[in-house]
Amino acid sequence: MKALSSLALVVALAALAFFLGRVEPLRVVLGVIIPYVAIAIFLAGVSYKVIVWSLSPVPFRIPTSCGQQKSLSWIKAGWLENPHSTPGVVARMALEVLLFRSLFRNTKAELREGPRLIYGERRFLWLGALAFHWSFLVIFVRHLRFFIEPVPRLVMVLDRLDSFFQVGIPLLYITDVTIVAALLYLLLRRLRDPQVRYISLFADYFALFLILGLALSGVWMRYFARIDVVAVKQLAIGLVTFSPIVPREVTSLFLVHLILLSTLLAYFPFSKLMHMGGIFLSPTRNLANNNRRKRHVNPWDYPVPVHPYQEWEAEFHDKIAAAGLPLEK
C-alpha cells in the first residue's frame, strides 16, 4: 500500500511534467523556475540541517568500540576499529563513508549451515548499497560535462572508464546498469523481506521510486529517445550562468527528468536522505576512544544535588564509630 501510493506519486509527478512540458508558456516554469527553487531549497535546507546538527553539543564522548582499546604498550590496540587518535578516526570514518564498513560486518558469520544463498542475502545488502551510492556519485560527476565548458579532464576520464566496455551506440555506461539493478534490488528487498517491509515507511519507498524514476528517465533519453544533447547543454549552462533559456529542441521527456531531479533536491533536506551529511557527525563513530586519556567537556554541564561525605558521616556517625572506622568529626 505504502509502496503503491509512493509509486503512484512519482508516476503522477512524471506525467504532470511530461504533459505540462508541452505547453509552451509552462516550459520556463518547469525548466527554469522550479529547478532554481529546488536548488535553493536544497542548499538552504541542507545547510540548515547540518548547522543545527553541528551546533548541537556532544555532551559525552560515546564512541562504539569495535576493537581492542589502547591501554598497555604490549597489547595490540585496534587503531582502526577502536581508534584512539585522530588518524584512526579519519581512517575509520573513511571506511564507513566510502566502503560502508559497518554494513559489511553484517556478512561475517561462522559455522553456518544449509544453503549458502541465505547467507549471501546479507552480503547483497552491502553490495547493493555500495553499488547504488557509488554509481550515483559517478553519474553525478559525469553529468558535470553538461554544466562546464570546456569539460574537465577528470570528468572525461571518468566518462571513458564508465563506458569501458564499448558496447552499443551510444556507448553503454556501466553505472547506468548498476544503479538501476541496485535500486531494483533495494526495492525488492524492502518489499519481500517481511522484517524490512514491516519497518518501511511511505518515505522509504518514495525515495527509491523517485531515484529510480530519475535514473530510468535518464536511461530512456540516452539510449532510446536519443535527445538533443546540445540543447540540453545549452539549458544546463544557462542555469549555472544565471542566463537561463529553454531551447525549443529540449523535449518534454527531458523536463520529466529535470522535474524528478528538482523534486529530489527539494525533498532531500526533509528526508532520511540527510544521512549523507549525518554520517560524518555520528558521535559513536567520529570520536576517538581516548576517554580516560583526555577529558571531554560537556558544554551544558550543571551542578546536581549530591550526598556529600559530611552528611553521610553525620547520618551514620554512631554506626561508623561502633565499627571502628575513622571519622572526620
Binding site: K49, V52, W53, S54, S56, P57, V58, P59, I62, S102, L103, N106, L125, A129, D193, Q195, V196, I199, S200, L201, D204, K272, M274, H275, G278, I279, L281, S282, P283, T284, W300
Partner: peptide, 23 residues
Amino acid sequence: RLRKFRSFRLFMDICVRCGACAD
C-alpha cells in the same frame, strides 16, 4: 534533549530503515 544531545537529534533524523540492525 534534542537541543542538548547531538546523538539524539541525529539518530532521530538519519535512520534509513535498512534493517541491518533488525536481527
